[in-house]
Write a protein that binds this DNA or RNA. Structure first.
Lengths: 113, 113
DNA sequence: TTTATATGATACCAAATGGTATCATGTCAA
DNA sequence: TTGACATGATACCATTTGGTATCATATAAA
């Protein structure tokens, strides 16, 4: 009831607060990418990009997989879900639209299992 | 298509990144409150609370309504929706569960009008 | 083996952030 | 009117944050 600071949630929202990081998530939603490939889409040094990717990894929004001398960054949808969950759970208080939405989530989840 | 930095979204995610501010939203979801009332729930000065409330207001997550010498802070659900929308739109890329979810949102919205 | 390359690590910097203390202002009430 | 009180506004501080530059390390390739 009214959880506010689950570490997961904090890490996710923290990572989502920066527009560059949100943009990186967008890129990673289209394909896994090495740090160098990610950096190719941004006007900043690889070191800066790597810091952002570290924040995303700390928030469990991405996972990193060594492959030879490269490190492949992969989107992790589940952690994003924890942010959505926080917002939805919270939203139930005032808007029935969100109740429908949460019901849809639960229905979809039970269908999968 | 792949919007990353709508001002709305940035303001909302920025405000949501801090656990104190998320907690304030929780409290405000139960009732409108003056800055003094909000401050009563936190171990920090009123000035600090006011700064947080300003960030929430800048993100359009709350609205402020003068009432005599008080200023009543009220939750604004719609701005939270912009954050949810960003997450959902984004989620469609990899998880059909979220497609169901977004369909439910749209259905609920059209039912209302 | 040598060399090029992808990444890691560190040091450093300016600006933003979360916080305090203090003072000013506006409004309710005696 | 005058005092109490809720809030606004500043100034200030320590820490975090987003960024750069530089050097070290590990691996692929010649």
């Amino acid at each position: 009831m009214l959880e506010t600071t689950t570490p997961d949630v904090q890490g996710a929202f923290r990572a989502l607060a920066d527009p560059s990081r949100r943009s990186m998530l967008m890129h990673l939603s289209q394909s896994d990418m090495t740090i160098g490939e990610v950096a190719g889409h941004f006007d900043m040094t690889r070191a800066a990009v790597k810091k952002h990717l570290t924040v995303l990894e700390e928030g469990s929004l991405i996972s990193v997989h060594p492959k030879g001398r490269e490190r492949v960054n992969r989107l992790e949808p589940n952690a994003l879900k924890s942010a959505v969950d926080w917002l939805n759970h919270f939203s139930n208080f005032w808007d029935e639209k969100f109740e429908n939405l949460q019901a849809a989530v639960e229905a979809a989840e039970s269908n999968k299992q």
